[in-house]
């Protein structure tokens, strides 16, 4: 497999043990996890940052930090990164406020309610926030043999490292969507067609009898024939 671009790109990464499966795991294991989830949903509802920026903020964590950090702590890091980098909050003010809450752990967050914001969230919940956009006709069709590009550009991308350079077959042509690679960096939406592409595990990893289906944007592919 190719080099991993970021700590998040885990497909096929070696060294991981058994999945700790527990059907009765709670959604949140503590109140702060619950709050991180709610804060992320609230701040994305009012579009303080876009979804791709949010993902990229997690993906920029150093690999050791990413791997030693729990899921919702990664979300918290992304919130802190985005809210301060985008100038919504001042980093020094955040540090000061953290110190205050550490000194007074019993202190609660108080302030004005904003019921209209919950109504806005309800609308987003119901109607979604689709990133589908008009684009040129698709370059590939069902059955096309395609090769995933070998090299990823620096920055955010959604092409998993494990398929890079490998040949697959287009199984389905989906709609055109905002390109994460540019949207994460404020370089525009640049919508592209997306495809569901099947790769043989044997080809990708040299073993296995299964098929891996990956969803990719058009610029991640080139004709294989």
């Amino acid at each position: 497999m190719g080099d991993m671009d970021g700590p998040h790109d885990l497909g096929g990464a070696p060294g991981f043990g058994p999945v700790r499966f527990d059907p009765d795991d709670p959604l949140f294991s503590s109140d702060w996890e619950r709050k991180v989830f709610g804060l992320t949903m609230a701040t994305s509802t009012i579009s303080l940052y876009n979804r791709d920026e949010n993902r990229h903020a997690r993906e920029r964590m150093p690999v050791e930090e990413y791997r030693s950090t729990g899921y919702f702590e990664q979300w918290l890091v992304a919130l802190e990164t985005n809210l301060t980098e985008l100038g919504v909050l001042d980093a020094a003010a955040v540090r000061e406020r953290v110190a205050e809450f550490l000194d007074e752990p019993g202190r609660e967050v108080r302030g004005k309610d904003r019921p209209e914001l919950f109504e806005l969230f309800r609308d987003t919940l119901e109607f979604g926030a689709s990133l589908e956009r008009p684009a040129a006709p698709p370059r590939f069709a069902v059955g096309s043999r395609v090769r995933a590009v070998r090299d990823a550009k620096p920055g955010h991308t959604r092409l998993p490292a494990y398929v890079r350079g490998h040949v697959g077959v287009v199984r389905r042509v989906d709609g055109a969507f905002v390109l994460p690679d540019t949207n994460a960096h404020h370089e525009g939406e640049n919508p592209e067609n997306t495809y569901n592409v099947g790769f043989s595990a044997r080809d990708v990893w040299g073993k296995g009898d299964h098929e891996v289906l990956v969803d990719v944007w058009e610029s991640y592919l080139e004709p294989a024939d």
Partner: peptide, 17 residues
């Protein structure tokens, strides 16, 4: 709590949100 309280103070989100 720091993030939530600062966002509430700024009026960006409500204390109930």
């Amino acid at each position: 709590k720091a993030l939530e309280s600062l966002l509430v103070e700024r009026g960006l989100i409500g204390a109930d949100t």
